[in-house]
Amino acid sequence: MKRRIRSQIMASILVNSIYAMINYPVILINTLLAPLAILAVVTFASKGTLLPVAAVGALIMNMVSSGTSLQQDLSHLKNDMRLQDMIVSSPTTSLVYIVGMAVSEIVYSIPTLAFLIVLNVIFVKITVIGGLIIFLDMATIFTFSISLGFFLSTFTSDIIQSWGFSGILSPLLTTIPPVYYPITYIPYPYRYLAYLSPTTYASEIAQSQTGFYSSSTSSFVLAWIILISITAVLTYLALKRSRWREI
């Protein structure tokens, strides 16, 4: 990677996560609290039986939360601070800006991720291949949420609108779909509705590796195809159809 692009990515990481964490450490508690709160509720309500599912689910929620947080952060930087206008007219491209901001969200949630990974290593029994599949699953759902977050942020005109988007996305993508519990817990015909959310496919893939959902090879492959297709469409929209330069 060229030095110039490294600097541009680093600038986004510094501004959106490292400087924010150094100057206001209290925000670290915020990122840790959201996935852990649901994890605790599900674990207590199931008397511990769903802890492994919820531990993987918390990882998925963390990846999706990165996208919703990114949407809010970018909207704030664009509408309240006018930072995006300064970046648009600088040598930084929209792709480099998204990549930098996406990495910044990961950096921002490192404490949460570290805690969840330890929890998963202790309570979730999986093979090395299974671990790799879950990692790819997380990477895909992260790309999906980041693309969605960036795409929406470029259309927001103020922070209230941005909060509205986040308020809709969080329950639709993480709380309601079977992220913290197995999809088999949802009775028909509601289960069909669950398949409208891409996080359902991500959960299905992860839960199939942890033994909480037994899927056939064809449905496993289909889940991957749908998840990758949705992510590809969102990534295309983020790169080609977002309002980086206004019309």
Binding site: A11, L14, S90, P91, T92
Partner: peptide, 8 residues
């Protein structure tokens, strides 16, 4: 940070 976005 702004200068880094410009490539410094």
């Amino acid at each position: 940070s702004y200068l880094m976005w410009r490539g410094y």
